[in-house]
Structures are given as structure tokens and as C-alpha cells.
Amino acid sequence: MTEKPPYIVSPTADASSTARPATLIFLHGYGDDADGLPLGLAQQFQFYNKMQYLKWVLPYAPHNQEAMTRAWYVPKALPNAAKPRVPGEADDETAPDDEAGIMKSVDTLDQLVEQEIKNGTPPERILVGGFSQGCAVSLVWGLTGRLRNKVAGVVSLSGYLPLRDRIAELRKQREVGSDEKEAKQWFFVHGTMDMLVPMKLFVQANQDLAEWVDKENIDGHVYQGMGHSTNSAELRDMLAFFEKVIPA
């Protein structure tokens, strides 16, 4: 688990509500915090009285000493990304992904899912996801996590798939069913003006996912003009996804 307990946003539904409980475990991006963009998302849904039965579990990444910020893994330079170099980031785009860090974060997600199940939330009422680097971890977890096929789906915003050439081997090593097609639902979206995670990485990730996931199980959207952020159209589509996979 991370060294700081997750930020919990409790459901707003009152005791008389007939809606069944559900949980979204959502990872923040590189250099952010649980009480940054993830909390902002939760607050927007609650402000408009949407998904009132949803519990938001917002974990904090460990503090990375080299990068001097919170990170789920040590990042590397991304191709054509219009951003300054950040501390702790590998300069070479061809450098290997931080497999140890990524898979440690994957294990953290498994622990968080297990804890929610112990807390009484049915696994088929749990979603796992993230934004940016959190999105990247959620995608890898969705393909290699121990409990990945227990949950309702994966919610992945503005990220990419690291370890893409290692997924098949990791599935074998972790004995998660290397040949199984993923049965859960995926929400995977991106903005056309994302200068931090180039669109071509989103396209590549979709191609890679197709090896493991039936296309009809991927709810994918591209938002014209959206940068490395969120917008109202994305939140609308996200709400529709929630209502489909974890209905009241």
C-alpha cells in the first residue's frame, strides 16, 4: 500500500436510498495528489447530484526521492511530448519502462480492490482507473492484476500503455490467464490537443488492448481540442459509462 491512506469521498445517497453501493478506485497523475484532479472529479459529480451511491477511493502515490514528487513509477521521456524534462525522468525515449515501479503500483491496486471487497462492496460493483500516469497503471493492472477480472471495469483518462512489449510475459509470470479475453468493460479516452501524452500513444494503446480485449468492451472517445485535462463532454461520457456498468 502507499504510505499515506487514500482520500475517501463517501457516497452522498441517504440511508433510504435503494441504490446499491459501488466504488471507484482512481489514481492521480504524476506530480499530482489524490486531492488534486481526482478529488475535483468526485466533487463535480457530487455537486450535480450524479452517482450519489458511488464511493471514491483516491490513493496517493509514494513520494519519489529522485523525481522529488509523488509518482506511481519513474517516468521516461515520451515521443513528441512538448514538455520540459522533469527531475528523475529518463531522457531516452527508448529507455525501458520502470517495470518494478509499475508492477508495485499494480499490486497496490490489487490490495485496494481486496480491501473494498472486505469492506462489503461486491467486486462487480468496483471500478478501477486513473488519469495520466494513473491511467497508465490502471491499464497495466487491467491486463495483469490479480483481481482484474473480478471488477466491473477500468476507467482510463489521458494516458498510455507502458510495458506494452512485456504484457504477454507478465500475464504468464503472474498466472492471470495469458490467453483469456478480458470480460470487463473499459472506458479509455484522450484529447486531441494533449501535449504531454501524444495522441499516437493513445492509438497504439488501443491497438495493443485489442489483443486482449474484445473491441465491443472498449468504450473509447477522442475529444477535439482537449489537452491534458478533462472537459464536460468527457464527464458526460464518463457518467454514461458509470450508469451502464454500475447502475443504481
Rank of each mutant, 00 (worst) to 15 (best):
Q204S: 11
E175A: 14
D219A: 05
L54Y: 05
Q43S: 15
P162A: 02
W141Q: 09
N206W: 04
A205T: 14
S17L: 02
L127Q: 10
S232Y: 02
G120H: 12
A90L: 06
D219R: 11
P75Y: 08
K150M: 07
V154M: 11
G145A: 02
G36H: 07
F45S: 07
P79C: 13
P122Q: 09
L239V: 09
Y60Q: 07
I167G: 04
D98M: 02
V222F: 01
S105L: 00
A168S: 13
N49W: 05
V189Y: 11
M193P: 00
Q207L: 13
E3D: 15
Y7G: 00
G145E: 03
F202W: 15
S138H: 07
K4A: 02
A168G: 07
H190K: 05
K200A: 09
G120S: 11
V222T: 02
V137E: 12
P247E: 04
Y160P: 08
D92T: 08
Y160G: 03
E211F: 01
L54E: 08
E99M: 00
P247H: 08
W72M: 03
V74S: 07
A210E: 15
T2Y: 10
Q204K: 12
M51D: 02
V9I: 06
L37I: 13
E243A: 03
D237S: 03
Y30R: 13
I117Q: 05
Y60L: 00
V197R: 13
C135N: 15
A100V: 14
S178N: 06
T192G: 05
W141K: 08
P162H: 09
S156C: 15
A77G: 10
E116D: 09
G88K: 10
D208K: 08
D237K: 03
V213L: 00
G191H: 11
E124C: 01
L143N: 12
I117W: 03
V189R: 11
W72L: 01
T12C: 01
D98H: 11
G220L: 09
F45R: 03
G88I: 00
G36A: 15
A136E: 13
M226W: 11
Q185M: 01
A22Y: 02
D35F: 03
S232K: 03
P87N: 14
K200P: 02
P75C: 03
G227Q: 14
T18G: 03
H221E: 12
S229K: 10
P84C: 12
V9M: 07
K200T: 12
E99W: 00
L39S: 07
E89V: 01
S156A: 15
G120E: 12
P247A: 06
V128L: 06
Q224V: 04
L157F: 14
G101C: 06
K184D: 06
V245F: 10
I218F: 06
V151D: 04
S132M: 11
P11T: 05
